[in-house]
Structures are given as C-alpha cells and as structure tokens.
Amino acid sequence: MNLAGFNDFELMVLVKRSERSAFTELIHRYERPLLNFFRRMGADIHSAEDGVQETFIRLFNYRKEYQPKARFTTFLYTLARHVWSDEIRRAKRKSKTTGFTDTLEVVQKTNSLEPGERLDIQAALNGLSEKLRSVIVLSIYQGLNYQEIAAILDIPLGTVKSRAWLALRQLRERLKVYSK
C-alpha cells in the first residue's frame, strides 16, 4: 500500500493497527528532520542516526498511546527530546568518549574557546545551555511554532519566547566575540 497522500494522523491510525507501510511512510517523512534535530542539538552523524532510529522505535512502541489531540510532530519531537536527554544522561554516567559524549566534550570545549578562535554557528549553538539550544533547534531548524515547542518541552509559552530571545542574544554575542 502506498500512503504518501495520507496525513500524519491518518498514518498513525494505521501504525496503531501495525501497518508496516504506514510506519515506513512516517520514517521517510521525518527521518531527515529528526536527523537534523539531533545534529543541531550537537550529536555527531553516527550518534544522530542512532537517535533517529531510537526515536522511531519508541514511536512504534508507544503507538497505542498516541492520541490525535495535538499535532503529530509534537508527539514525535517529545519522543526525540527524551531520546536526547536519555543519551546525555547515559553518556555522563558512562563517561565514555564516544557518540553523544563527544557532544558534551564539544560543548565544554566551545565554552572554553579563547577570543580570536573561529566559532561557527554550530559551535556557537553547542555553547548554549541545553534548554536554550532546544528552543532554537525546534524553532529555527525544525520550524515548529512556540505553542508546539512549549508542549514538547513542557514549559509555559512565555518561557519559550524568553528563551528564544536569550538564546539569540547569547549566540550573537558569541559569534561577535569569536569572529574577531
């Protein structure tokens, strides 16, 4: 069955019935946005692919719990955010220097850069706290609206707005300092 004309809600109804083709269609739709979500959050390419894979597996496992009360992307990115948080926690516990842990090192390194050292956008983004970075990644790179981001991050709408402002301000300052 080919389902590309179905909307996400319709596909999830079929995924709940364990329709393999509907799940495949959802993967095709969101694998790339999710990959870029993890990459923008700071994961290397292999870890980002692992993150995407884990998100889809959780989507399948939680398919019965899905209710079409909010946009599908809210549900999906909530799962992705949890995957990211879990991996960060796991990496901290294990203190290994692979995968997501590399990200932590990048973040730490970024924070200790000296003025004059070149900092690109991604490095500047890595230098933000995870809370601020999440808002920027979901808003600017994933194209989600503030209302949806508030639901995904489980924070008030006003907080999303404030974090977006603060994050952009910090990014500007970092880019100014490090591009000199």
């Binding site: 694998e31 790339r32 870029n36 956008i121 991604q122 600017i140």
Partner: peptide, 11 residues
C-alpha cells in the same frame, strides 16, 4: 545566517 550550512540526509 543560522539557516546556512548543516542540512543532512540519512543514509
């Protein structure tokens, strides 16, 4: 400026 650069595809 932030939109430039990273936009990757899965394998």
């Amino acid at each position: 400026k932030m939109k430039s650069g990273l936009d990757e595809s899965v394998r």
